[in-house]
Design a protein around this nucleic acid. Structure first.
Lengths: 254, 254
DNA sequence: GCTCATTTGTGCGTATGTATT
DNA sequence: AAATACATACGCACAAATGAG
């Protein structure tokens, strides 16, 4: 690691406190903060490498090292000949036993909005198997859209068994959270039984709802949540806009 | 759940042993076996619902329940007015602490072929961070393609730290398995530290290697495997053909 | 279809401080 | 203490891709 070198005093605004390690790491930290604070608008082109290098008072190679780190983290997109772009939004969505949309969105310092698009009480049909109920029984089906910074990132269709959770829609609309709605209905806790991940191109309607082109693939996550007794309380399919969300799978802390 | 109902004794070839639960589940199991055994050619149209219902001696509604289950599992595609189609290939690829390509492919009763497409000893570069080595050190980079039934399903670019695992390429070529190659080099066991899942459209070269159109999205899984001491032994990016593979995330059995 | 300025990608060389042997 | 390896940083040059006209 580099220690302080007076002969190369920083001519930039890098906070010495966070410049503990190498220069490029400090630069990366500053750029990361700019992006997360929205000082580079989502999708906006950053100044070219020379300009940025001058801003930090370093060589272009040094700046590139910082940029490369942010590309690996998913915060930047670099296109040869075109420029360096702040990504629309990048959310690491953790898939584990305690997967919760609201928590996942909140973890990146964003307020998550969850809108109720539609609600209906329908025959279990395709949801009968994952919810382990008879095909003739009813389920409450709700469609929701989750947004961050006013931009939609996920589209969910979820089914809840009736009559136990027939009132789910009202609670979701009120709280904007599945977790809170379930708690209000007596489901104190729930865990993710299984998630199946696939991908496809969205339909026109789905693309519209996500405010994205039909040419951009979506991540499709199908899952079942069960209560403490192992009884299914929610079966759902969620579509994630792939430019905004990547799924992270790590062993449970248990 | 439906229990046994003697009044509806199966008039079909359903194995009573696996028909533990509901009729439609038994039918789904048999159809699933037919698909996996290739008795329905990939992409082939199945007999219509009436014909299939007759074959199992059940009502068309019952058959549809089984078909819907297989649609959810990704084994069938149903298009109104067109018919029911067997999907090209569907592999449930488990993502957990002990994720192994060969085991995952073998679990569906297939022999997995893993071809070595290229190998090189290169500067760590982008792999330095995930492998926790210096940027100037070298890594062994190999590109492999995994196929099932002669059809490519996955494309991997993996990096292994040198000099410890410099000889990896030869072992992979010989064994067709990363697990065996690592074992030959003294890595008795390894675990998946983290997987990051995203999706995008493939480049022309990637689409060609997977024998798929560029319009079909691929699942992108980036991961790091570590040995028993927590030292990274492999960092890789794997592209899965989304029509053939879906990822399954379940809590580790621990 | 073409040119051309802009921008990123890549390679060479040089130098210095740190860590290991 | 000396030798070696490596991470970091700067300078220069050219290749390759992009986008505007």
């Amino acid at each position: 690691m580099l220690k302080d070198d007076p002969s190369r005093a920083a001519a930039s605004a890098i906070d010495p406190a966070e410049a503990a390690g190498a220069r490029w790491q400090a630069i990366a930290a500053e750029l990361r903060a700019d992006i997360l604070a929205g000082r580079f608008a989502p999708g906006e082109r950053l100044p070219n490498e020379k300009t940025l290098a001058d801003r930090f008072g370093v060589h272009r190679h040094t700046l590139r090292q910082a940029v490369q780190a942010l590309v690996r983290e998913g915060h930047l997109d670099v296109r040869q000949g075109a420029g360096t772009f702040a990504r629309e939004l990048v959310l690491d969505y953790a898939l584990n036993r305690r997967t919760r949309m609201t928590e996942n969105l909140a973890r990146i310092g964003e307020t998550a909005a969850r809108d109720l698009l539609s609600q209906a009480i329908v025959p279990a049909g395709e949801w009968a198997e994952p919810l382990q109920v008879g095909g003739r029984s009813k389920v409450a089906r709700i469609e929701t859209r989750s947004s961050v910074r006013g931009r939609p990132v996920a589209l969910s269709t979820a089914a809840f068994p009736c009559p136990r959770l027939a009132e789910i829609a009202g609670h979701v609309a009120r709280h904007g959270s599945i977790t809170k709605a379930l708690r209000a209905l007596g489901v104190a806790d729930y865990t993710r039984l299984r998630s199946v991940v696939s991908t496809r191109l969205p339909t026109q309607a789905e693309a519209d709802a996500l405010a994205r082109p039909t040419t951009q693939p979506v991540l499709v996550v199908q899952y079942v949540n069960v209560d403490r007794d192992g009884v299914p309380v929610e079966a759902a399919t969620t579509l994630f806009a792939a430019d905004a969300v990547q799924l992270v799978v790590e062993p449970d802390a248990a």
